[in-house]
């Protein structure tokens, strides 16, 4: 079947899609957007997290046909105008990226959290990231990155949050 969806603001089309394949497969293998990662294909790791109609979901658990006509934002869509989003910059600055496989999913999850709640509690951060596994960092740097991003976003454009 043919799938047409708005991905990161532009219309993408894929032909001869097997309807039972996942949105993750469509994004990576048919639309040339390999940012979202495939690590488990069973909803356990969150490395495939994307926005579907504004809500973070595991792309590996969305059937291709279900995504037809929908709005999707992947990690590739977070940076605007050539500049990294503050959440992305904070991950780099806090040293929250090692192998990087978990990073795209964590970025979408953290982006969503801070969009809903600009100053989340420690418990809220842990809860929001509970669906994302990282085998490298031990999570502490990731939590630091989210705190840093929250502080910078609160300080506003150009602010350093210090």
């Amino acid at each position: 079947m043919r799938i047409t969806a708005t991905v990161n603001g532009t219309t993408h089309q894929a032909d001869d899609v097997w309807p039972g394949e996942s949105l993750l497969f469509v994004l990576r293998e048919r639309m040339g957007l390999p940012g979202s990662k495939n690590a488990c294909e069973q909803g356990e790791c969150g490395s495939c997290t994307v926005y579907l109609d504004g809500v973070p979901v595991c792309a590996c658990l969305v059937a291709a046909g279900q995504a037809d006509g929908r709005q999707i934002v992947t990690v590739e869509g977070l940076a605007a105008g050539g500049a990294l989003h503050p959440v992305q910059q904070a991950f780099i600055d806090a040293g929250a990226v090692q192998c990087g496989f978990c990073t795209p999913g964590l970025l979408v999850a953290a982006h969503d959290l801070l969009a809903r709640d600009p100053s989340p509690s420690e418990a809220d951060v842990r809860e929001a990231l509970a669906g994302n596994l990282c085998r490298c960092t031990g999570y502490e740097k990731i939590l630091d990155a989210v705190r840093l991003a929250a502080a910078r976003l609160a300080a506003g454009p150009g602010g350093d949050g210090a």
């Binding site: 996942s22 294909e41 069973q42 909803g43 590996c60 658990l61 969305v62 059937a63």
Partner: peptide
């Protein structure tokens, strides 16, 4: 097929190959 959080795991791991999916979303 609703949220797919059970069905898609089975499809991804080829535990199930139904002739058709009925999307309810």
């Amino acid at each position: 097929l609703a949220g797919g959080t059970d069905v898609m795991v089975e499809l991804n791991f080829a535990r199930r190959r139904p002739a058709a999916l009925l999307d309810l979303t």
